[in-house]
Design a binder for these strands. Structure first.
Ligand SMILES: [Mn+2]
Ligand SMILES: [Mn+2]
Ligand SMILES: [Zn+2]
Ligand SMILES: [Zn+2]
Lengths: 143, 143
DNA sequence: GAGCTTATCGACACCGGGTGTCAGTACCGG
DNA sequence: CCGGTACTGACACCCGGTGTCGATAAGCTC
C-alpha cells in the first residue's frame, strides 16, 4: 500500500515529485481504504468531520479529483450527476452497483472489452475509451 | 412513429392522456429529427431561438426530460456532467461517440447484453439496467 | 532545529446546469 | 365558443463544483 522505495523500477507515480504528504490527504486515503462502496465528496467530507478530522470541503473535492486523475481511485456519476469515488483494484474492471444500498461489486469480462474494440475499429474510431456499468438491486435489498 | 389508434393492445404511451400538443413541443421534436448527434438542452434552445422559435429555456429542459423519461429520446451525460439528448432508433442499443466532434454511431451487441445479465445473476442482482458507451476519435477527426 | 521555498489548505465568492414557483397563456373536449 | 386545466416561461433559487488568495505547513538545506 505504501510506495516509492529507493528502486527506480516501479513506475508507480503515487507520489508525484513535488507532491506533499499532508494530514488531510492521509485522512482521505485512510477513509477510502475503509469504505467499500462509492461515496460522494460531500459524504466523505462529512464522515471525516464526524471523526474529528479538521478538513475543508474544497480540499476533499480537489484531493479526490487528483486521486481519480492519477488513477488511484475510480469515479462514477450518480443518476443525479454527482461524482462518487471508491478505491478499487488496479486492474481494469467495471461495476455492478445496487441502486438501493449502493453495494458495489467489481466485475470484468474479456467479452465486453473485445466487443468494444471490434465495434470501434469497424467504424474507424481510435483512441477508444469505454464505460460499462451495471445497476440493479442486490439480493439483500430484495428481501 | 405515431401511435394510439383505437386498439387497446399497443401500449405505446406516446401521448399520455392529458398531454397536450403544443407549438413548443412540436418545435423540439422537429429539431431533434434533424439533428443527429447528442445535444444539450441549451444547444437545442439556442438553435430554436436562432430559427426564430419563441421558446423558453425552462420549457426546453422540461420537455427534453419528459421525452427522455418516456423513452422517446436517449440521454447521456458529457464528461462535464451535462445531459445531452438525441432521438435514436427505438431498439435497444448503445453509442459510439467521437470525443472531438460529437459524431454518434448507434451500435449493438448481443455479447454485451448476455454478459451483463450473466454477471448480474451470478452476484444475485435483479432488475438490471446497464450503461455501455464507447468514446473515441472518429476517422475524419484524426486527419 | 532553524530558516526558507513553495505546495497545500480552506473560507469565500462565484459559476452554471438544472429545478420550484406561479401568474399568464393556450389547448381541446364538450 | 367556453371553461377547465395542462403548459409556458421569467425569475428566484438550489447545489455540486471551481477560482482566488492570504494563511499554513511540508520538507529540503545548512
Ligand atoms: Mn472494460
Ligand atoms: Mn445493452
Ligand atoms: Zn442493495
Ligand atoms: Zn469526430
Amino acid at each position: 500500500m505504501s510506495a516509492d522505495p529507493a528502486d527506480g523500477t516501479t513506475a508507480r507515480p503515487t507520489v508525484v515529485p513535488g507532491q506533499r504528504a499532508t494530514r488531510q490527504r492521509a485522512a482521505i486515503g485512510d477513509l477510502l481504504d475503509q469504505l467499500d462502496d462509492f461515496r460522494s465528496a460531500q459524504d466523505i467530507h462529512e464522515e471525516l468531520r464526524r471523526r474529528g478530522e479538521g478538513i475543508g470541503l474544497t480540499t476533499v473535492y480537489r484531493t479526490l479529483q487528483a486521486l481519480a486523475e492519477a488513477g488511484e481511485i475510480d469515479v462514477l456519476r450518480t443518476a443525479a450527476g454527482e461524482a462518487s469515488y471508491r478505491r478499487c483494484s488496479d486492474t481494469h474492471h467495471h461495476h455492478l452497483v445496487c441502486r438501493t444500498c449502493g453495494r458495489t461489486v467489481e466485475v470484468e469480462g474479456p467479452a465486453v472489452e473485445h466487443w468494444a474494440e471490434k465495434v470501434a475499429a469497424e467504424h474507424g474510431f481510435a483512441e477508444i475509451d469505454h464505460t460499462v456499468e451495471i445497476i440493479g438491486v442486490c439480493e439483500s435489498c430484495r428481501s
